[in-house]
């Protein structure tokens, strides 16, 4: 029993997300905390193009580091958040955005699941309506 509890505790421990892992190096951090917060927020929206499933904020790749530095340099130069993001998108395309923008080409991506649910709901509605009608018809014919 003790052994089981120990195993359980260990297993649950694995579920706790690792909080410590951070790619941003101390020498990259901006002195102005407000600017640094904005830089972190922007970095979390941008995909690391080398490792692809990480944001540049998470990634240890050299290119991600250089992009983080670039984001900070542009913020310091007075760019707005949107301007910084637009700058990176102009070079790497929408692909760098971890949240794809809503537009014509991404319509199915954003609304496809909703469409499937709607079609399914319509199908279910007709199915149950017919089932009820059939049940009624059976009752009456008896």
């Amino acid at each position: 029993m003790i052994r089981f509890s120990a195993a359980l505790i260990l297993a649950l421990g694995l579920l706790i997300p690792f909080q410590g892992a951070q790619a941003v190096n101390p020498d990259e951090v901006l002195a102005d905390p407000a600017l640094e917060t904005r830089a972190r927020d922007i970095s979390q929206e941008l995909r690391c193009v080398v490792c692809q499933n990480q944001s540049i904020d998470d990634s240890d790749a050299d290119l991600a580091r250089d992009l983080r530095v670039l984001v900070r340099a542009r913020l310091k130069a007075g760019d707005s958040d949107d301007e910084v993001i637009a700058y990176v998108v102009s070079r790497y395309g929408d692909f760098v955005l971890l949240r794809p923008p809503v537009k014509g080409a991404t319509f199915i991506l954003w609304f496809g699941p909703l469409l499937i649910v709607i079609v399914g709901a319509i199908g279910l509605f007709f199915y149950f309506r017919r089932a009820a009608r059939d049940a009624n018809a059976q009752k009456e014919s008896r």
């Binding site: 992009l67 530095v69 070079r91 395309g93």
Partner: peptide
């Protein structure tokens, strides 16, 4: 050294 040229061209590797 700081990927300025690489980023200008949108280089990934």
């Amino acid at each position: 050294p700081r990927s300025e040229g690489a980023i200008a061209f949108g280089v990934t590797g």
